[in-house]
């Protein structure tokens, strides 16, 4: 099992399009992938569950994967979130 923490950096947070990108990315891997926020764990293949996690910018998420390609899967999701899904980033998160 592979686990890694990551922070939401884009302005809109884990909104519809970012959640869709996570679902699409997760679909490329064989491993079971989960995303956790404050102890709530959802499967990364469910856009609706991801949305109701409610993750505005600054939220810390834990990415968990289990399976043959778990390392690559976690890395892919983490870098997607870190890149801000190609959206506008929050300027200075540290101040908030």
């Amino acid at each position: 099992m592979k686990v890694k923490k990551v922070r939401i950096v884009n302005k809109l947070g884990l909104h519809a399009r970012p959640a869709m990108q996570i679902v699409e990315t997760a679909g490329k891997y064989e491993s079971d992938i989960f995303i956790e926020k404050d102890g709530n764990r959802v499967e990364a293949n469910s856009i609706l569950d991801l949305l109701v996690l409610v993750a505005p910018p600054g939220t810390e998420l834990t990415i968990i994967a289990e399976g043959p390609d778990e390392d690559q899967a976690v890395e892919a999701i983490v870098s997607l979130i870190e890149s801000g899904f190609g959206e506008e980033l929050v300027e200075e998160l540290g101040d908030k």
Binding site: A16, R17, A19, M20, V23, E24, V42, E43, N45, S46, I47, L48, D49
Partner: peptide, 16 residues
């Protein structure tokens, strides 16, 4: 395209 992909993900959401 991207809005379509969002709806597509919702329509085929396994949890749903």
């Amino acid at each position: 395209g991207s809005i379509y992909r969002v709806y597509e993900a919702i329509l085929h959401d396994p949890q749903l």
